[in-house]
Design a binder for these strands. Structure first.
Lengths: 221, 221, 221, 221
DNA sequence: AATGAATGAGCTTTCATTCAT
DNA sequence: TATGAATGAAAGCTCATTCAT
């Protein structure tokens, strides 16, 4: 995690650095992400980076933390306290929030995804933390739905949570270009993603909802 | 693609090499996968590798091809010609085949997955080929199901196919350890995966099926 | 061209490096000149060279530039502004200057010569620049001589310039050892070259002069 | 020098090999000329080359020998036995023969030239042999000219011979492209060299002749 | 006689990190 | 605090040569 020195940096300088670091780690493996490239593009001295972070690993950890925090922001906007709200409405809102995170911060989201597939030297627990947390969140919702009789009792909450998060995770690469290459990330035009994303989102969610609901699924819509 | 020299290698030597190469590329990005490591572990001279493959990229391509062929083997075992077979039975069989591929050849499957997320120097078309092909396959099935009236007409075949493949793709990392690190792959005990996988598989498939079926979903089971 | 880092090097260290690099590129083709050899002999880390120059090509370019500058120094000493000076006196002075360059900086001169014969990755224009420039210079002189009536009107200025430069270029290898191998360059004893060079120089220049002059050639001397 | 095995090779196979080897050594330094490239292009086994020649050095030596023999062929065509022939006519014929060698066998000529500048591991004596021999030949002619009173007595025969050979050696690169790169050699169109070469040749020879003659030089032509 | 697989040293270049200034 | 020069290990790849077949 970054030093005091890093936190005291002028906002602009710090932000520029973060942006460039995110760009590097979102387009490269942990191992092939290049500290040299980052400092070169950021226009700072190599030694400086090592005054902000203890090493490459530390920087990576920080970016993962950033990703987790950003994701949390999106989820925090959803109000789940209303006890009368239908469980599927909640699910929809949550999924929409997560999808928006992925669409609006694709590089950060990519860093998170890479961490799961990648070979970063981070302790597994940390890397899995975010993924597990999100699943736990959905699991809780599903269980609540089962208790309320809105979700069929035979549905396994763990599995349902897995399915939802898996679908969300894959949805962004699928929508963008079926492939998350550097160029794709760069050229992604958020604007025109909207409608496609919305359509696909509705379909995916509908299938999952119908698959879990206690009601005859195809009536709706 | 490998040279004649490689194909003429003693079976044992060639297999050992392939195994080690698969291990390297399944635990590392294309960029960070190390040719030097491979030859060191395989106990062959560096120059020898370049008599088997033109370069690192060629080796990678070969492994991807291996993965595609292995996957095709699993799918080829499914007989889809029986016109009376219920569409969901077909889907189940296909999914089971793919999951078995992932569980029994997790490293090969991982290489394929990496190619999609990663920054391999392969032409996008080739990399996407496999992913798209599999999706097209499922899309065809879904459309057939719609024509037969077994799958609800409002279901978008593309999206359904995406959901199925996404779930399958993520299922293996989820079942193994939530994280596919080198150590994880090594310690994987196939035996105890069986029951867990079977259960999760049933659940996931059920949700998806119910989500798409024209019948009231929860009657079954 | 070298970085600031290189220019800021302690004089002694930089000079030692330059000398060794010149030695390597004067005794080897661009392709077979070895960066590894240079850093080994210079006693610096391999990585350091790449903080001084972007790559091997850049180092080569720098050495060619050094050669050009050194050559220019020798030629700059010649004052050609005196309009009354006989054209052959001018030619003699120029040739003498160039020969001195080759004799006193044979390795640098060799690097230049290699660039013309060799397969350096430099753009042809750049490589030919120096050779052409020198010829143009002589061509101008010859034309002036023709206008003044000192050089026979039938002499082609281009060809005459070529002949002069060719003779000069070959004169050094001829004088040193008929062969410019590493050992030869090392063992070159400047002292005893002087008289031989002077004699050969006089003879060559005489023949060329007489061959071009409007006067009966053999009267002089 | 090549083995019996090489000499017994089918003509076509041997000729193809020689051609390709000449091509490689004419476009590369001794060190960077690649045995691997030669065998690959010639379509023969690597081991075969080592049954024809003891090593790379031996192959190089053979090509140099070929060059020397080819050159000798051109010179052998000149009949210098006629005692009444003017010395300058002889010189012209010889020079023309050598120039033709360079123009018609530029790659072979290039190999010879490279040997002088290059760092081949050949004994200096051998490499210099050809150059010295040619010069000795011209030296003899010049001395005969002096004895006959056709060449001015003050002309040093060694130097004159050097000047002639230097001019000839440089003439080909000068005429072709001022630079003897691989592409240049390949694209060289012999046909259109003829007239240019003839003109330049005449001029160069004239200057040298006039420079050495006992007669007032500019009368002629 | 011909083959071509095997070899390991060598190449140029990039890397993360240290440390004196 | 910021700097950036120095480092040597490691990367992918080519090389001339050997030798069992």
């Amino acid at each position: 995690m970054p030093t005091e020195t890093f936190r005291n940096l002028p906002d602009e300088k710090r932000q520029k650095f973060i942006e460039i670091a995110i760009d590097e780690f979102s387009t490269h493996d942990y191992e092939s992400a290049s500290v040299s490239q980052i400092v070169a593009r950021a226009g700072i001295a190599k030694g400086s980076l090592y005054q902000y972070f203890t090493d490459k690993r530390d920087l990576h950890l920080y970016l993962l933390d950033l990703a987790a925090k950003k994701k949390a922001e999106y989820m925090a906007e959803i109000d789940l306290t209303n006890p009368d709200m239908n469980i599927f409405v909640m699910l929809r809102m949550l999924c929409r929030a997560l999808l928006q995170f992925q669409i609006q911060s694709p590089k950060l989201a990519m860093i998170g995804n890479r961490a799961i597939y990648g070979d970063s030297p981070l302790p597994s627990e940390i890397v899995n933390q975010a993924a597990i947390e999100t699943r736990q969140f959905f699991k809780g919702l599903v269980e609540k739905g089962k208790n309320r009789g809105e979700i069929h009792s035979k549905v396994d909450a763990d599995t349902a949570a897995f399915l939802i998060t898996a679908a969300l995770k894959e949805l962004t690469p699928y929508l963008t270009n079926q492939r998350q290459s550097e160029a794709d990330v760069k050229n992604r035009v958020n604007a025109d993603l909207g409608p496609r994303a919305a359509l696909a989102f509705e379909q995916v969610i509908s299938i999952i909802e119908n698959g879990m609901s206690t009601h005859s699924p195809q009536k709706k819509d």
